[in-house]
Simulated scan of single mutants.
Amino acid sequence: MTIDPDSYEPAYIQLAGLLRAAIDSGELAPGQPVPSEKTLIQQHGVARETVRRAISILRAEGRVQTLAGRGSYVRGSADEAEVVTLAPGSRISSRMPSPAERRQYGVAEGVPLFVVELEGQEAQAYPADRVILEVPSLT
């Protein structure tokens, strides 16, 4: 697929969609670098800001992480996630982490935390991109 300059959809959204599809199909695997800005500019005939906005969308979705001076990399999939089994009566919410929590839990920008509360216990937070919360069956 290519960027359609006549589309009602902005080029950066189209490019984000192309990259998302490559990630979802496994063409860009977890840990693999996303093509460089220069490569994406040349391949798709778009401006540098278009590439940056597309990568920003994927970063906000938690699909890629950008390392300063090193580029952007595909984040791991849910298949690699830790499974946390919840106790009966647990309450689950989600929220965006503070900058200190992002460092503490090692989460990228745009990745929320799951917060699990159980009466009488301290709330536990889990990075939503690396944890699957499992509810035990009652049978």
Rank of each mutant, 00 (worst) to 15 (best):
A68T: 12
V107N: 08
S72N: 01
Q42E: 15
A60E: 11
E37Q: 10
R59M: 11
R53I: 05
H44S: 02
T66S: 02
S56Y: 09
H44G: 00
V111H: 03
T85Y: 13
P35L: 00
P127D: 11
A22Y: 02
G89A: 13
P97L: 09
F114C: 10
R63I: 01
E61M: 06
S36T: 15
P99F: 03
R70Y: 13
G69V: 03
G120K: 15
A54W: 03
D24F: 01
R59W: 03
V83E: 14
R91I: 10
A123W: 06
R102D: 04
A22P: 01
R103E: 14
L19S: 07
V46E: 06
S25Q: 04
V51R: 12
I41C: 01
A60S: 12
A100C: 07
R53Y: 06
L113A: 09
G76H: 10
Q32M: 13
A16I: 02
G69M: 03
L28E: 01
D129N: 11
Q65D: 08
S36D: 04
L67C: 09
A100T: 14
A47Y: 05
L113K: 10
V51Q: 07
D129T: 01
V111Y: 02
R70G: 07
E82R: 14
P88Y: 06
R130W: 01
V115Q: 12
S98P: 04
T39R: 08
E122G: 11
A54P: 10
